[in-house]
Design a protein around this nucleic acid. Structure first.
Lengths: 356, 356
DNA sequence: GTACGTCCTGAGAGCGCTCTCACAGATAAC
DNA sequence: GTTATCTGTGAGAGCGCTCTCAGGACGTAC
């Protein structure tokens, strides 16, 4: 058996301190470091925080004391006075469609963010916001000075939180252009360019009946990709059909069935996400259509499965990890008091494989 | 343009305070709540923390004051005195094979953990530990009282950190039995049972030459699954071949080629992860083997792709999200000073689809 | 010699909170 | 009436740190 409580025999136990569940071998304080180095606490603090105005020998003495005692600053104490916490919240809305673990968008973003914050020595506080209650909690938490800044990995609908935070003075950066008029800086991906490249690619191949499986229309990615699709086809004589999905495989499957019903003679499909393309592929196969011979298929995202689908999927790659990195980088600049562009647009790229 | 700095006109600005990048509309303190309610700070604190020993009318007065002022406790101050931070670190080793975003293990675990911590009002601090430097940082961070407890989502090799933390008195729970003799409590999955079920299923179908693509042998999951495979086959007359993979698709692809070379007549493959099964499937197809007619294929994990593979993959399901939940739940119990089992074993389940 | 900088260092206040301890007031026991 | 027993509240210390401000030491200018 194992217990988190202090066992009676622990030497370093803090006495008379209510319920300390922690065996605290009394971590050294700045005071002790100072004493050991024979200086004042103020000077020790200066050294620890890298002030250059401290005389060389003293500085070294303090460093030595720090090393000998294994001193690590107490973040809480520091936060209390500096008003900075050294941590950043990353908010991920957990919608039934864009679920954290399924498509690889969020995990990719998290990775990118993590890398960048890591380098800046900031902590990443992850908040998966699925329910209304969770949203409230996140709001309370982020507006209450518990984090230095907030990152949104895709907001759905017109969530007022980013704007609210920004007004409260909390630095915020969003992934994806926020719906509604907001002055919150954001990082986005060249959806339009990607979709246009995909459609033109299909057109070049002589496809005449190009359908699309659109993403959810309460998310910018869904909206933008559909708009771009329509626009890309606007000039042409091609017939186009639209079915609605929600980025999931299942919805892709269903939408594809719908599409085949609406236009049995369609010869190309652009799915607004790889996951939906994956679902669509299954339906196509069941319906006896060969890909790409009968129907060309193009996705969007270029997640891991894409190149392992059968046939490997032509898709629009978006630099997911880089989105995360950029998100974090922009926020760090904000924290440093620098100015930041209203928006950053990252490039997309058409990856042609065998499905088209 | 946008800037994180205080703009000159902000009313609530804190004066003369070095570089405050935050517009602080001077958040109310407990002192102010107390004054407004006409009580002492101590009493206000009692009410805020839910003490029952405060007289009804006073309690209500304080609550009113809290509501009116929009008071939110300052976590840093609270932490400073209570020695608890209210946050939990989740450490994910970012190995090249089990990468955060690709197979859906880590994201799933994160979800589970997040849900559970959410309910307990704890913050999740995510640490993706990829490099040695990152590992050091994580060590420093977690050993320094910045978090109340630490969760490990799969450790590779015999990382000494969990044990170290536990000895330091920091509550720890691991996912997967730690290698080496450690007394750190952990949550694992019934690898053995799952693998045995898979192999028996293959045997029952009359498969005679069963090969396996094993996982990396510096991870318990890799080790255990291989050991179980061998054991399951030990009694039978069946011939078995083993190829090594590292849980990735690519390695599955390669390993499968190897296997076909070693035993061209094999009629079944058990892959220690779905991702490897996915890679293997591709190789099989290229080699002109039909699945399941010529070769039966079974995976492990039951991640999203499994049922969308062609043919849908028979696999051993492990309750990924539940692992996360259990992890968190055990840690919370530890924090509460409760005793906790040395290990919890979650069930696995064979999901038979068309690939076998 | 005095006056004035310049450069470092230390004293000390105070961040917002919790928790111990003392004590006032009410109630009960004798 | 006195003493004992609660109950509920307030005073105040102190968590570990940063940062301002004062002042000592030293150098330079007059």
């Amino acid at each position: 058996m194992w217990t988190g409580s202090t066992s009676g025999t622990d030497p370093g136990r803090v006495p008379g301190r209510g319920i300390t569940h922690r065996v605290t071998p009394t971590r050294p304080t700045l005071e002790q470091v100072a004493r050991r180095a024979g200086v004042s606490r103020a000077t020790a603090s200066r050294v620890v925080n890298g002030s250059t105005t401290v005389a060389r020998p003293i500085r070294e003495a303090v460093h030595r004391a720090v090393a000998e005692l294994g001193y690590v600053p107490n973040l809480a104490a520091r936060t209390l006075v500096t008003q900075r916490t050294g941590s950043i919240a990353l908010i991920l809305p957990e919608t039934p469609n864009r679920v954290f673990s399924d498509d690889q968008f969020f995990p990719g973003v998290v990775r990118g963010v993590s890398q960048e914050l890591e380098a800046a020595d900031k902590q990443l506080v992850l908040m998966l916001v699925g329910s209304a209650a969770a949203h409230d909690r996140a709001e309370r938490y982020t507006t209450s000075g518990h984090v230095d800044g907030v990152l949104f990995a895709s907001i759905h609908g017109a969530d007022p939180l980013p704007e609210l935070l920004a007004r409260t003075g909390v630095p915020v950066v969003c992934s994806g252009r926020p719906l509604g008029h907001s002055r919150v800086p954001y990082v986005e991906v060249d959806q339009h360019g990607g979709v246009v490249a995909a459609v033109q690619h299909l057109l070049r191949q002589g496809r005449r009946r190009i359908a699309t499986i659109a993403g959810p229309q309460d998310m910018v990615a869904g909206l933008d990709r559909l708009a771009a699709f329509r626009q890309a086809l606007a000039g042409s004589e091609r017939r186009s059909v639209v079915a609605m999905g929600d980025f999931t495989r299942k919805s892709g499957e269903t939408a594809m069935r719908q599409l085949l019903e609406d236009d049995p003679r369609l010869d190309a499909v652009f799915a607004a996400s790889d996951l939906m393309a994956h679902g669509a592929l299954r339906t196509l196969r069941k319906a006896g259509r060969r890909v790409p011979e009968d129907v060309a298929l193009v996705g969007f995202d270029d997640i891991g499965i894409a190149q392992y689908m059968d046939p490997p999927l032509t898709t629009v790659r978006q630099p997911i990890e880089r989105i995360g990195q950029t998100l974090a980088r922009q926020l760090l600049r904000l924290l440093a008091g620098e100015r930041v562009e209203d928006s950053v647009v990252l490039p997309t790229e058409l990856i042609v494989r065998d499905s088209s």
